[in-house]
Design a protein around this nucleic acid. Structure first.
Lengths: 163, 163
DNA sequence: TAACTATTTATAATAATTATAATTTGACAC
DNA sequence: GTGTCAAATTATAATTATTATAAATAGTTA
């Protein structure tokens, strides 16, 4: 944790930004909740626990700054709120997401998976790829199991009826 | 054009929705500007030219409806506005986008390209993929050429100076 | 024609985000 | 240490996109 804070501090200093207490508190929240996909509001509420005097605008500005420095990625899953996602250390690309259409859960995929596709885009479309956003919408493992369960129960009812 | 309107009319009727004059005007705008990625506001302004009495809320509702019926796809390029993109006739998947970080242009890719990746996601993550959103951010062909141009000019200045 | 439902309009409300002005903080010169 | 300055923050207002509400309209069926 401290190590990553240090690294981020250096990244900020490299662009002559400071790691103010407010910014540090924000980064800490992001590190602690790395698995989640927090909205600015979410971050604000969590940061307030550490630094109650912080303002919402500061959180927005901090997230914007971290986003410009590619420390976090800003992503939108179509619910009208921007969410902020820490980039893994050393990752050159943004990771992918699996959004469940049933339960709304969001899973991350760190593997690249797009190397071949990006090559095709570069050669066939002449587009120099710098970054990507890939999100799959579908049914997660858990909800698939639940559906199967329901189907079995429905089938059982059928059998009871006809027998 | 008329043929596609007819098809959309049928798709609406199949779910017992009607193709009202307002809805038809909206669909016509989307068809005419198929290459663009219009926001609700953009659509509203264009529809107003055909049907000046239409209300913004109706446009929103219509786009929402078309989106539910998978006639259009709602997409967000990170500028805080939802954009609406007609699905190609018969397309089962949403097409991909190339967003230029220099000039902001948006190009479309109709090829699927993700078949292999989706297979991997299904088998390795147990996630049943229903749809996807893939956007590449980078430099388009035109801006790359412009950059090369600039580099050449800069080099020429160097040569003039040192000679 | 009357009754009913879906749709639309006009407007208000909400929610997310950004801008503004005043204040605070921290670094550096003296 | 004190004064000065720029950057950052706070509190608040403003803006923007979107959604909700109530009344009016249109189209359909009995």
């Amino acid at each position: 944790m401290e190590h990553r804070i240090e690294r981020i501090k250096k990244q900020l200093h490299a662009q002559s930004y400071k790691l103010t207490p407010q910014r540090e508190a924000t980064v800490r929240v992001l590190l602690e909740r790395e698995e989640d996909h927090l909205s600015a509001e979410d971050v604000y509420l969590l940061v307030k626990e550490k630094a109650p005097e912080i303002g919402l605008a500061t959180v927005y500005r901090t997230l914007e700054l971290l986003s410009e420095l590619k420390i976090v990625d800003k992503i939108n899953f179509g619910d009208g709120v921007s969410r902020y996602d820490l980039r893994k250390e050393g990752a050159t690309h943004f990771h992918h997401h699996l959004v469940c259409m049933e339960c709304g859960s969001v899973e991350e995929i760190d593997e690249d998976l797009l190397e071949d596709v990006e090559k095709i885009v570069q050669t066939d479309w002449g587009f120099k790829v710098k970054d990507h956003r890939l999100t799959f919408h579908g049914i997660c493992r858990v909800c698939q199991a639940a559906e199967k369960e329901e189907d079995l129960e429905a089938a059982a009812v059928q059998v009871n009826r006809t027998s």
